[in-house]
């Protein structure tokens, strides 16, 4: 009995603390994708709270009413096999709840996996985000610049992050803008998001990737399109070009601060998509999208002479 109250008061305290403090990142969305997930989370918390309250109430009542110390010596509990109506209820109601949540889950999953709602007819900004131990490289193929450990994005415009990794599996995560997606060495995955509030957001690799994992973080800054364009121009005016040698140095394991370059590494080291994908090694000359054969040859052995063309290939998801 004491335990029940201890537990209830604990849950109560925690929820008070939760409400009292400033909202936690995931529930403080700054863009449509994160807003969808935050809404789903609140909805599921509310639904689940009903179940928790029902179970807790039943348990407290039963423990209180049927404890031995409250009953006469000679009370002998009855033998009860089960009851079809009761069993129908304890199956039926959870089934209805699960159906409801399934609909929510499927609908919202399709939402966050596609271009944010209301942004379908805008041209997305494409940014390749690749991880290496323990850094993030952001390549802007259109703008022809590359940054390390920070990324600027315009607000109110869809952004398409193309994710891959130069090492272990990592997980790209900006809690206030969208949920996670893995970055892997043998394919490119796509994460759609948009920011609606200018500001700086924490981004990190959420998937354990070895010794430097804890500090594998990056900054996301959302700003208006004009400011973004000014920033791009500034970089073209001030930053050094990214050379192949320089990029090889960047790939070495370790931590780097924030860095900025003109040009992208995509030019000399194409991402693992289309014909460069880990599981789709067609001959380099072939531009036909229909070739399905898998040629198991070393990725590194390929010579890449097709500068600039890889952007046109679709990632295969």
């Amino acid at each position: 009995m004491k335990f029940k109250w201890a537990l209830l008061s604990l849950v109560f305290t925690i929820s008070t603390v939760l409400i009292g403090c400033e909202p936690v990142l995931v529930l403080d969305p700054k863009g449509p994708q994160a807003e969808t997930t935050a809404n789903v989370i609140w909805l599921s918390i509310a639904t689940m709270a009903v179940i928790v309250i029902v179970v807790f109430t039943l348990l407290v009542i039963i423990l209180f009413k049927y404890r031995a110390s409250k009953q006469s010596e000679d009370y002998e509990p009855p033998h009860i096999e089960g009851n079809h109506i009761v069993e129908g209820i304890i199956v039926g109601i959870p089934v209805l709840i699960i159906i409801f949540l399934s609909v929510v889950s499927v609908k919202s999953t399709y939402e966050v996996e596609s271009v944010p709602k209301g942004y379908e007819d805008q041209e997305p900004l494409v940014i390749y985000a690749s991880s290496s131990n323990w850094k993030w490289h952001f390549s802007y193929p259109e703008e022809d610049i590359e940054t390390v450990n920070y990324v600027f994005i315009p607000t109110d415009r869809p952004v398409e992050f193309k994710l891959y990794s130069f090492g272990p599996i990592t997980s790209f995560w900006v809690p206030q803008l969208a949920g996670q997606k893995y970055a892997m060495a043998d394919m490119v995955t796509t994460l759609h998001l948009a920011a609606e509030v200018p500001g700086e957001y924490m981004g990190r690799n959420a998937n354990f990737s070895g010794e430097g994992f804890a500090e594998n973080i990056f900054n996301v800054t959302a700003m208006s399109q004009e400011e973004f364009d000014t920033w791009i121009d500034e970089i073209h005016a001030t930053a050094e070009p990214l050379t192949e040698d320089e990029f090889d140095r960047l790939l070495e394991p370790g931590h780097l601060g924030q860095m900025t370059f003109t040009g992208t590494h995509l030019d000399f080291l194409p991402p693992p998509e289309g014909e460069h994908g880990g599981h789709n090694h067609g001959p380099s000359e072939s531009e036909s999208p229909s070739h399905m054969e898998h040629e198991y040859s070393d990725h590194e052995d390929h010579e890449h002479h097709d500068h600039g063309e890889h952007d046109n290939h679709d990632s295969h998801e």
């Binding site: 789903v40 599921s44 689940m48 919202s108 996670q180």
Partner: peptide, 19 residues
């Protein structure tokens, strides 16, 4: 169990995963 159901909702799991 109910937090398990929350995790099972794929879209929300994108935010819970690995945390």
């Amino acid at each position: 169990g109910v937090t398990g159901v929350m995790l099972a909702m794929a879209s929300a799991d994108y935010q819970y995963h690995n945390t």
